[in-house]
Nucleic acid binder design. Structure first.
Length: 552
RNA sequence: GCCCCCGUAGCUCAGUGGACAGAGCAACUGCCUUCUAAGCAGUGGGUCGUCCGUUCGAAUCGGACCGGGGGUACCA
C-alpha cells in the first residue's frame, strides 16, 4: 500500500529531524497522509499542522525541518512545503514505472493484502424470511454482503458467508396458512386467510405449484397436519426462489443455517438459563424478558412470549452466541436492512451479557432503494410495482448494472435506482464505460498477440507522462481496497473503476498503443496490460464480469 | 414523543478535521480515412439545509432548529 510506504518514509524523516534536535520529541501516531488535492503533488501530509501546537513552532518551520531530514528515496521525486504547512510529495517516474512489474507479478491478487492475518470472520447477509421472493431492497443488502465478503477475502481474512433461515415461528406459519387457504380454495374448500396472512399474488402461484406436484393428496389431512405440510412446502419454494435470483447475480453462500437447528439442539433454553444465572432475566406479565443490567430497558426485550413460544430475539441471541463461542468466529458482520436498526443495541447488550465483546459483532445497515422509471419513482406496493422484485430488475438491466449501481452508493444513504440509465447500452452508462474499457484493452492485446508483439520484453524506457499518469492512478488501488475492508464500505470501488476507465479512454484517444515504433509499442502494451489487470481486479471484487469483447 | 439514516451543482451522488469542494448524468461547443465514436476534448453551473459552538483550520466534530425517509410488536 502506497500510503503505508509514504508513512514509513515520513516517519524516518520525522525521527531524523527529532534526533537532529530540529523538532521536539513528540509522539505523533497519525501522520495525516492523504492523496494530494493539488495537481503539483501526489501525496500530502498534514503532519506539520498537527504538530504545530505541541511543538510550539510554526507549521512552515516544522515542515522545513522534516523536509531537510528526509532520506533519499527512489520513490519520492520531490518533497516540498506548501500552503499553510502541508508537506507535498511527488512520486518519481522511475518508481511509478517499476510498479508495472509489481502489478504484473501480483496479477489477480494485486490490490489484496494481509490486513486480516487469517482472522476468522463470518459475513451474514440476506437472511430474508423464506416467505416470499426477494425485493429490490433485499438485493442491495445481498450485493453489499457479497462484495464485503469478496473484499475481506482479498484482504487476508478467512471468510464464511452465511444465510440464516428463519424456518420457524410466526412468519413461516402465516405463509403455510396462506398457502393452505389457496390450496383448499382450489378444491372448493373455504378456509379463511389469516388476518396477517401473505397477500401477494405469488402465494397463489406457489399454491398452484403444490397442486401441480401433489394434486389433492393433502385435502383430507387434519388442519394441523396441513399447516405443517404447507409450511414445509412454502419454505422449500421460497428458498428455491431466493437461491435462483441470487445465483443469477452470482451470489452464493458457504452455509445455510436453519433456525430450527438451534431449537432442536436446545440452544434456546441454554442461552436463557445462562442469561438467567447471571441475572439478566426477569419474568413479568407471564413472559420472560431480557434486561441488561445497568442499562435502560427499551421495552422490546421479550425472550419468551406469554404463549411459551420463544421470540426471534432469543433465537438470534443463541444464534450469535453459537457463532462466537462454538464456531470460533473472531468477528461477525451482519448486513441487513436499516429497518432492523432497533435490533442492534439489544444484540450488543445481550452478547456483552454472555461475555462476548460487543464490538466483535458489526452491523452494516443499508437504507432503502427507490426504483425510478421515466423519472418517476415506482410505488413500493406489493402488487403493482413492476420492478419491485429483484428478479425483475436483474432481468431488465442485467446483473452487472444491478451490482454497479447498488454498490455506488454509501449503504447509509437511501438511493434511487435509475432504470433508464442502467438499461442504457451507451457511454452514458458508467458500468458500460468500465466494461468497455476492459474489452478495448483485451482487443488491443489480442491484436498484439496476433502480430507476435507480446513475447518481447519491454524496457519501459519510452514511457511518457500520459503513461505514467495511468500508473499513478493504478497504484492507489491497494489503498482503495484496504479502505473498503477497514470501513466495510465497498462504494469506493465503483468510483475508482470509473476513474481508471475514464483515464484509460482518454489515454486511448491520445496515445496509440500499437505503432511502428517497436519500443513504444512494447512499453505501452505493458501499461495497458496493467490497466486491464487492475480494472479486472476491481470488477472482480464488485462481482462484475470483465468481458473480453463487447458486441453491439 | 423517543431512536436511526440522509440533506453537497438542474438530477443522482462521492468527498479518512486541512490548501481553489469533485464525478456521472442533463445542458452547450467541438471531434469519426485511426488499436471498437459503446468513445474523447472543452464550457457553463455551488449561501456544502439554517443558526450557534469547538479548532490555527469545519462539507467533515458537538448542540439546537428546519426539511425528507425509516423504526418504535409478547412480527421477523
Amino acid at each position: 500500500m502506497i500510503t503505508r510506504k509514504i508513512e514509513e518514509y515520513l516517519r524516518i524523516a520525522l525521527r531524523e529531524a527529532q534526533s537532529r534536535g530540529l523538532l521536539p520529541e513528540i509522539d505523533q501516531i497519525d501522520l495525516g497522509i492523504e492523496k494530494s488535492r493539488v495537481p503539483e503533488a501526489d501525496y500530502s501530509s498534514t503532519l506539520p499542522l498537527r504538530l504545530a501546537r505541541a511543538a510550539g513552532s510554526s507549521p512552515i518551520d516544522i515542515a522545513n525541518a522534516i523536509i531537510v531530514s528526509a532520506p533519499k528515496s527512489e520513490m519520492i521525486a520531490s518533497i516540498d512545503v506548501a500552503g499553510p504547512g502541508f508537506i507535498n510529495m511527488r512520486l518519481s517516474d522511475v518508481w511509478l514505472t517499476s510498479q508495472l512489474d509489481v502489478i504484473a507479478q501480483n496479477g489477480d491478487s494485486f490490490g489484496g493484502s494481509n490486513l486480516g492475518d487469517r482472522t476468522k470472520v463470518q459475513v451474514e447477509f440476506v437472511s430474508v424470511n423464506p416467505t416470499g421472493p426477494l425485493t429490490v431492497g433485499h438485493g442491495r443488502s445481498a450485493i453489499l454482503g457479497d462484495v464485503i465478503s469478496r473484499i475481506m477475502l482479498a484482504s487476508g481474512y478467512e471468510v464464511q458467508r452465511e444465510y440464516y433461515v428463519n424456518d420457524t415461528g410466526n412468519q413461516v406459519d402465516l405463509l403455510g396458512q396462506s398457502l393452505r387457504h389457496h390450496y383448499l380454495a382450489a378444491f372448493g374448500i373455504d378456509v379463511p386467510m389469516p388476518s396477517a396472512g401473505y397477500q401477494g399474488e405469488y402465494v397463489r402461484e406457489w399454491a398452484g405449484e403444490i397442486i401441480r406436484d401433489h394434486a389433492d393428496k393433502y385435502v383430507d389431512l387434519s388442519a394441523d397436519e396441513q399447516t405443517i405440510i404447507f409450511v414445509e412446502h412454502g419454505i422449500e419454494i421460497a428458498l428455491k426462489s431466493i437461491r435462483d435470483v441470487l445465483s443469477e447475480m452470482d451470489i452464493s453462500f458457504d452455509n445455510w443455517f436453519f433456525e430450527r437447528q438451534l431449537h432442536n439442539a436446545g440452544a434456546i433454553d441454554e442461552v436463557i438459563s445462562r442469561l438467567d444465572s447471571s441475572g439478566y432475566v426477569v419474568r413479568r406479565e407471564g413472559a420472560t424478558w431480557f434486561t441488561a443490567a445497568g442499562r435502560d430497558d427499551d421495552g422490546g426485550n421479550v425472550l419468551v412470549k406469554r404463549t411459551g413460544d420463544p421470540t426471534y430475539l432469543v433465537a438470534d441471541i443463541a444464534y450469535h452466541q453459537d457463532k462466537f463461542q462454538n464456531r470460533g468466529f473472531m468477528r461477525v458482520i451482519d448486513v441487513m436492512g436499516a429497518d432492523h436498526h432497533g435490533h442492534v443495541p439489544r444484540m450488543h447488550s445481550a452478547l456483552e451479557a454472555l461475555g462476548v465483546e460487543a464490538s466483535a459483532l458489526q452491523y452494516v445497515l443499508c437504507q432503502m432503494v427507490h426504483v425510478v422509471v421515466d423519472g418517476q419513482p415506482i410505488k413500493q406496493s406489493k402488487r403493482s410495482g413492476e420492478f419491485e422484485l429483484l428478479s425483475e430488475l436483474v432481468a431488465d438491466v442485467g446483473p452487472e448494472a444491478t451490482r454497479y449501481f447498488m454498490l455506488a452508493r454509501d449503504a447509509n444513504s437511501q438511493m434511487e435506482f435509475d432504470i433508464d440509465l442502467a438499461r442504457n447500452q451507451t457511454d452514458d452508462n458508467p458500468v458500460h464505460k468500465i466494461r468497455y474499457a476492459h474489452a478495448r484493452i483485451v482487443s488491443i492485446l489480442r491484436r498484439a498477440e496476433q502480430e507476435g508483439l507480446l513475447n518481447q520484453s519491454a524496457e519501459l524506457g519510452s514511457l511518457q507522462s500520459a503513461d505514467i499518469d495511468l500508473i499513478r492512478i493504478m497504484v492507489r488501488f491497494p489503498d482503495i481496497v484496504n479502505a473498503c475492508a477497514r470501513d466495510l464500505e465497498p462504494h469506493h470501488l465503483p468510483h475508482f473503476a470509473l476513474e481508471l476507465a475514464g483515464a484509460f479512454n482518454s489515454y486511448y484517444h491520445s496515445c496509440k498503443v500499437i505503432s511502428e515504433n517497436q519500443q513504444i509499442t512494447r512499453d505501452r502494451l505493458e501499461v495497458v496490460g496493467a490497466v486491464r489487470q487492475v480494472l479486472a481486479n476491481c470488477l472482480s471484487l464488485m462481482g462484475i464480469d470483465a468481458p473480453d469483447e463487447m458486441r453491439r
